[in-house]
Every structure is written in structure tokens, then in C-alpha cells.
Design a binder for these strands. Structure first.
Length: 294
DNA sequence: AAGAACGTATTA
DNA sequence: TAATACGTTCTT
């Protein structure tokens, strides 16, 4: 009896009726590639409205206008990515502020220290903001500056978040939950986490929200259905390809069949402890236990 | 709940 | 620009 999990399945590779464009490689090169051409510093230094961190603190009038509802009601309630991808980032910043007021969101030691300093004199914070602004605008920065930026991003990123980014890095997993579905990475990984996402097939645009649309997950390339190279041409998806826009049922990635976030998503979020790094530590533990992915 | 239909992101 | 296919909504 041949079942759906049989790689040969209803249509083995020698059968002629695989439809139009079946990749020989089950996995796209972009998925396999571990070294993404873009480093974190690229996204930091690349001007992008979605990465305009300065705008999170003091949104320009234009950004504030953009944040207004302005017109029609959304078809559905904003999801996490929607919030994350807000042109000004105001949703997330606002949420962070509310959490901070509620005492749920602790600043990193660096940030509290900076906050104290800022109470007396906002100079340090301002200076860093200005420097970061220069980076973000990337205006006139020579190649040597790029070099410096990329080499130092590992050490710059943490103060970058802790000092004047108005919320703890612990918020990043919140966004990451939805961003990556089963592939999200903890912010405890810092730059690695983000670059990991990129390396896993998330285009710069999808990460930064460039196009502002929803992001698509990609097939894992490793599950049995992904390994199939031929369409069955018999399932409803194959027969109804023109209208259905769906991949053959026997080739549908197991990972994509699950809801983004997967089982346990709710409990992980509800058990989220924003204070301190307990949460990120827990995530690391989960990861090492192998209970996180999959 | 499952499947169909559609919108649209992504890729070649 | 067309093809592919993921995500969402609608229908059964």
C-alpha cells in the first residue's frame, strides 16, 4: 500500500506527469545557504522606515501622520507582524512603554544607568542617538565606516538596544514568535538571532517589513513531503492548481501545515516573563532540550 | 473542520 | 512578467 508519506508516492519520479515546474532540489538554495549576504549591520545602516529606531522614540510629524488610522478599517485585527511592521514602529514602542509603566518590562542595567544619567543630562543618550542616526541614514559614510560598523556590530548591538532603544531586547522574541513560525529565534541571540532568521530564508524585506505585507514561511525542505519531487496530479490541489494555487498535497511541507507558532505557542506566550532574562534563558533551555523547534 | 477560492508574496 | 505557492477567508 502506498501512502502519502511514500516518497515515491502516487507519482514516482519516472512518471511523466509532474506538473510545470518541480524543483530538482527540494530545498531552495536560499534556504540551504547559511551565510546570508547581508549582515546585521547592513540592516542597521540601511535607511529603512521600518528600522528607523530613532523614530520609535521621537516620531517625526510625518511618521505620526502615517501612524494615524487615516482611512478604512482593517480587515482583521492587527497581528504581531502588523505591529512590528508598522511604518513608524509606534505600535511596538507604545506597547513597550505601557509594559514599562506597568513594571512588567525591566530595562537592562545599562539602560537604567543611562536613564539616570538622562535625568540629569540627556547628553549621552542624545549623542548615541545622533551617532546611530548617522549610521541609519548612512549618509556619506565611507567604506571604512561600513567596515567598522560591521566589525563592531556584535558589541554595539547590545548597548544599542539597552541604552536608548526604549525597551528590553526581551521584546524581540515576542515579535519573533510570529515572525518565524516554527523557526523563530530568541533575542537572547542578539544579532545572531536576526541573522539566523535571514539565513533561514527570510528576506531582508520580510524581516524589516520593507514591503509591509505579511511574510511567507518557506518549506523546510527536509520533511518527507518536501523531499518529493513530483506532483501527484491527482489530488485536489493538483487538479485545481489554477484556482487553488496550492502545492500538491503530497508535497505540502509538514512544517507549513502547522499554524505559525505551532502547538504550545499560546502557553509560551502566556508564560512569558518579561522581567529579567528568565524568559530568554528558558528559551535557551527549551532549545537545548529540543522542545522548541518542531 | 476540511476544502475551495482568492489575494498576493516570492522567485525565475 | 508569469508561475508558484503560502496565508487568509469563504463555503460546505
Amino acid at each position: 500500500m502506498s501512502t502519502a508519506v511514500d516518497i515515491a508516492g502516487p507519482s514516482s519520479p519516472d512518471q511523466p506527469h509532474s506538473s510545470a515546474k518541480i524543483p530538482n532540489e527540494p530545498l531552495r538554495p536560499s534556504l540551504k545557504r547559511s551565510n546570508h549576504p547581508y549582515s546585521l549591520s547592513h540592516y542597521i545602516s540601511t535607511p529603512s522606515p521600518a528600522v528607523d529606531v530613532k523614530g520609535l522614540i521621537q516620531p517625526s510629524p510625518a511618521q505620526q501622520r502615517a501612524a494615524q488610522p487615516a482611512h478604512t478599517k482593517p480587515r482583521r485585527a492587527p497581528s504581531w507582524p502588523d505591529m512590528w511592521e508598522s511604518p513608524s514602529g509606534l505600535h511596538l514602542a507604545h506597547a513597550a512603554e505601557l509594559l514599562m509603566r506597568a513594571g512588567l518590562l525591566a530595562l537592562t542595567p545599562a539602560s537604567t544607568e543611562q536613564a539616570g544619567l538622562g535625568a540629569q543630562s540627556s547628553q549621552p543618550v542624545k549623542r548615541e542617538a545622533v551617532e546611530a542616526k548617522g549610521d541609519a541614514e548612512g549618509g556619506g559614510s565611507g567604506p571604512e565606516e561600513d567596515e567598522e560598523d560591521s566589525s563592531g556590530c556584535g558589541t554595539e548591538f547590545q548597548p544599542f538596544l539597552g541604552a536608548w532603544f526604549p525597551f528590553s531586547p526581551a521584546l524581540f522574541p515576542l515579535a519573533g514568535f510570529q515572525m518565524g513560525g516554527g523557526h523563530w529565534r530568541s533575542a537572547a541571540m542578539g544579532a545572531e538571532g536576526i541573522e539566523g532568521l535571514v539565513a533561514e530564508g527570510y528576506s531582508p524585506g520580510s524581516l524589516g517589513g520593507g514591503s509591509g505585507g505579511r511574510r511567507k514561511r518557506k518549506r523546510c525542505g527536509e520533511c518527507v513531503p518536501c523531499r518529493r519531487q513530483t506532483n501527484c496530479d491527482q489530488c485536489s490541489s493538483c487538479r485545481n492548481r489554477k484556482r487553488g494555487h496550492q502545492i500538491c498535497k503530497y508535497r505540502k511541507c509538514e512544517e507549513l501545515k502547522r499554524k505559525p507558532g505551532g502547538p504550545g505557542f499560546e502557553s509560551r506566550v502566556s508564560g512569558f516573563d518579561l522581567r529579567g532574562s528568565d524568559f530568554t534563558l528558558g528559551l535557551a533551555q527549551e532549545r537545548s532540550n529540543g522542545t522548541l523547534d518542531g
